[in-house]
Design a protein around this nucleic acid. Structure first.
Lengths: 236, 236
DNA sequence: TAAATAAGTTAGGCTAATCTAACAAATTAA
DNA sequence: TTAATTTGTTAGATTAGCCTAACTTATTTA
């Protein structure tokens, strides 16, 4: 099925919104906000996508991706993350520059291109932001991660991904001396506004709750795709 | 100026048609055929492109690109040929597969991406079909080439490019044992239908006039960008 | 040079993706 | 449990890019 640029973006947004919220069913308004269009526009498109069997949706009900819709959305995510990896690894883009260009590249239609690119990059499992890259079959490595704001005071952890891919956030992360796989010690937390003092490579910084919500971390015992053996670990 | 996919294609087609015909001024019908749309559609778009100052055009007159239009069209050609080179050199696409994917990739908007890609490929001057790649300034290496059908019987030459980039033609070229920079001896030519017998690496083949029209060659004395010192050479 | 043919234009219509404004249903809160 | 608020839908309009059919201008040829 050859979808338009726009249709692909709706499917991708649906997957992204449900993933971010942790709830599979998505509302019209929510989707409209995510796509920077009006709810009426989403409504029109929903009819078309339902017609094509890509979403499950009844009037005034919640929206979910069909199996086929999810497969396509996952494939677009795969392309996006492969391109990000290419830009970062091969073309020396910085991690805050890759997202916008990948937003365009993800819509190139060529199965062969995707497979060849995957091979060229040596079948990477994670992109420059720490997000898992679905393989040819749509499977991806799951990490049992939590956000920095969930880490207890006095605890330490390792940053494995970022939630927000915007360049402004990523530049801020770099400014704090933080990068993928860096150790973070949580020194203190303000009761009133949840401001955290963290230490990275000996550098202390104060960061907001919002910042901490967008940093994904694992404890030192966690392993990718496995239940953590550390009984202290709150991941599951 | 941010142009749509379609507007970019019109500018590119304009440059291509005028280049292929050797005449700068292009007609509405000609352009319509090249873009696989109807003349009426071209007419609408021409008004828009004129409005934007990208073409020079008066009612019932011929169409030419403005300086700005030509600059943009050249930039799209640059992107197309860089991507073809990438696909061929880095991702192991065959030369008959690169064109269609590059048709999509040429519309990605990112100056940085183009410059980085150029550097990654070590600033190539020719693409996999032997066509020159415009540099950052829009300059390109000019070759004084002619077509295989212009070579005299008994003469020999070197293939430097193909005119037709379609996969069906390119597969045929490979089948005849021919590739870029191969030597060709023209053994005989049929008076009646201009069928040529050629020899490539010891392999003899009969090819049509149409085939020979789509193969670009140089004589052994020709050098890129220079007037050929061989007085027998008919290039100029 | 007048008729035939080719090339180019205009008018009006279609679809995809968007919008605004008005309305309807569902949810939340008083 | 009714009223207020939020969420979702419909109707009608707009723009880009395309079409067909009818027309006009330019060019070719008898």
């Amino acid at each position: 099925m050859q979808l338009s640029y726009t249709e692909e973006n709706y499917l991708k947004a649906l997957l992204k919104v449900s993933f971010d919220s942790g709830i599979e069913a998505v509302g019209t308004n929510e989707l409209a906000i995510s796509l920077f269009v009006k709810p009426a526009t989403v409504n029109d498109m929903l009819k078309k996508l339902k017609e094509k069997g890509l979403v499950d949706y009844e009037k005034y009900g919640k929206i979910t991706l069909s199996a086929e819709g999810k497969k396509i959305a996952t494939y677009i995510i795969r392309k996006h993350r492969l391109w990000e990896t290419f830009l970062y690894e091969k073309l020396e883009f910085s991690w805050d520059e890759v997202h916008d260009v990948a937003e365009q590249l993800e819509h190139i239609h060529s199965q062969k291109l995707v497979d060849k690119l995957d091979k060229f990059l040596d079948f990477p499992e994670f992109d420059p932001h720490g997000d898992p890259i679905p393989n040819r079959l749509g499977e991806l490595k799951v990490q049992f991660k939590k956000t920095l704001s969930e880490v207890a005071v006095g605890g330490s952890c390792k940053m494995v991904a970022v939630k927000d891919n915007s360049s402004s956030f990523l530049q801020y992360v770099v400014q704090v001396g933080l990068g993928l796989n860096n150790e973070i010690n949580v020194l203190s937390k303000q009761e009133y506004d949840a401001i955290l003092v963290i230490e990275v490579n000996g550098l202390k910084s104060s960061v907001s709750q919002k910042f901490a919500d967008n940093i994904f971390v694992v404890c030192h015992h966690c392993e990718v795709g496995k239940i953590c053996p550390n009984t202290q670990c709150t991941f599951s």
